[in-house]
Design a protein around this nucleic acid. Structure first.
Lengths: 193, 193, 193, 193
DNA sequence: AATGAATGAGCGTTCATTCAT
DNA sequence: TATGAATGAACGCTCATTCAT
């Protein structure tokens, strides 16, 4: 049985569908303003059905981050083993930009719901990761300007994703442009040595 | 007597006190998660008292933005009358950075509650302002990289304010550093001509 | 002092204005749905001002009925002293119809807010009056049909006022027509003797 | 066991029980003055339970009218297809009187809460129906007296139901008497031709 | 003759969650 | 794998009313 790809999937794609719809709505309206009733209605199931698949509302959102944390964790682990060279940092930015592209709507959600994230367990988790990343990019012994440059590099990636979505240009192209600027910034942060 | 701490010492400053407490709580927990009951309790008045001073919950937050909109509007107006030179843009960044410093907690609130802001009338207003600012910094006829640099300049200011608050350094110093980087970015965006 | 008509009226017409506006709004929206805030706003005074002139909301409506009760009470008193002839009943209908024309909006209010009236002290009062009137028109020793006719005569007056207000015709003309029918009914109720 | 009075004997009739209690209270105190808390308490459920069965308070009252609208609609449809003869009008009165008897408490509620009905969606609907009925009874080319007679016929039915409820007589008998008078009126309206 | 400031009670409504079936 | 029915807590908001000034 279980005709094609994953385990236990025959008609049991409900869990996945809940996640899809939830992400869609969370991204659109925010986490707090999205009610389980809304999610259930859009799926044409009852609220109780959601509780068969997830223990709480927070559980739904936590599950959404599961796909994201993997690649980022690997990135962090990898980086921690490398020497703190410019080239390593460039690689970090490159891969981080890719991860963002893959989980764009999730990143946007995070960006737009920081206050909410702060009281979600997953929020703390993600924030710690971000700090780790900043720590990896940072050169603590450099002048404040260069430190800001490093942070700004990361932020530029976010800026590229968020703000420029309202712009006419091709998303991928925009992402590349943002990556370029981020690279510039990190390079400058190193060039004054 | 009873100069400071009695239960009924102040007269006529209730409106202001509501604003103070509201800002505090909105910034801490987000707009949605802060209930009027909470605000009222902290002020030791009833919920109904809030409604004597403000017509709705949204009205409270709108009033908080009143001090902010003035300076930013003036900045935009001024900039629109200037020629689009590099020097003008530098001045815009300078003054915007100052406005942010003055209304820091409000800016942080905006940053952290974007999803919420989107459905507040004031959200649209602020967003339009931001777009105007970006438009003023932008050089539409330039390569995509330079355009991103302009946006990134603005975002760097935000980054400076938000992210580096978790850092040990002096806030004012940090702001200056962020301003410097933003200046660099805008200058670079012009230098390839 | 007190230049022209009533006692204490120089600039002290506020009480009257409250009554006017209240009647207007009560008639338009019902008693319950009309708030003191609304009345106060339309008069451009504060709610507290209303409480200077009237002790409660109910007091306002009671005062509105004051002009009405006089004529109706007199009518009842007069009728109770007369013998129960047809001619007396015709006179009752005539004068009642007149009273209704004078206090039309109040009558309409009563008609449309019976459920409300029932729990207002004034409601009981008015209802007792109505029953007295019906009793005066009634001939208890007649067949049920004739009794209904008597009630219907009174109702026809109300019907004339209420329902035909939505009709193109002249109000006074309509009232006369309704009076005629009511007369017919009461006459028929007597003719089978 | 526990056949009738236990705290949890019925299953699946809650919706019906809500309607029963609501009608009872609405009729007794009016729509506005009846709170959902009151309804819930009398049913020994929570307010939230009401919302499982009805989307809003207005929804409850709308549902109460559902049984009524059917027969009346059919009556109107039927009448619209008939020629405007006296016999047709007599049939309309007959059937309308029957419909009223079936939904007596609802009709009484309407009569007593007209001001409320006016702002309920269902109010408009019912009013339109009433006007249609009057239009069907009316003979627009007749003298004003005869037009009033037609309206009065309908009102007599209402009068019969409402006012005479306070009277000792048998309701059905009273209804028949009122119907007779209404018939008289409509017949008279035609007899002067 | 009126206001400014506030209250206490209550409203209709929504929410995340539970549990027997 | 789900549903039907319900709950308890909270929410934003409005109301008639009070009272010192």
């Amino acid at each position: 049985m279980s005709s094609s790809s994953g385990p236990q999937q025959r008609r049991g794609d409900t869990r996945q569908r809940i996640q899809d719809v939830a992400l869609e709505l969370f991204a659109e309206q925010g986490y707090e303003k999205t009610s389980l009733r809304e999610i259930a209605e859009r799926l044409e199931v009852t609220k109780a059905a959601l509780y068969y698949h997830f223990k709480t509302k927070e559980d739904i959102i936590i599950s959404l981050f599961d796909d994201l944390t993997g690649p980022v964790d690997e990135l962090i682990e990898w980086a921690q083993e490398q020497p703190k060279t410019l080239e390593m940092k460039r690689e970090v930015l490159r891969r981080y930009s890719e991860a963002m592209a893959a989980g764009a709507s999730l990143f946007r959600f995070m960006q737009e719901n920081q206050a909410t994230m702060r009281e979600l367990s997953i929020g703390e988790t993600m924030k710690r990761r971000l700090f780790l990343l900043v720590g990896l990019l940072q050169a603590a012994d450099r002048p404040l300007e260069d430190q800001v440059r490093c942070v700004s590099a990361l932020f530029t990636l976010h800026a590229g994703m968020m703000f420029l979505q309202h712009v006419e240009a091709d998303p991928e192209e925009t992402r590349q442009a943002a990556l370029t600027i981020a690279m510039d910034l990190i390079t400058q942060a190193h060039s004054h040595e």
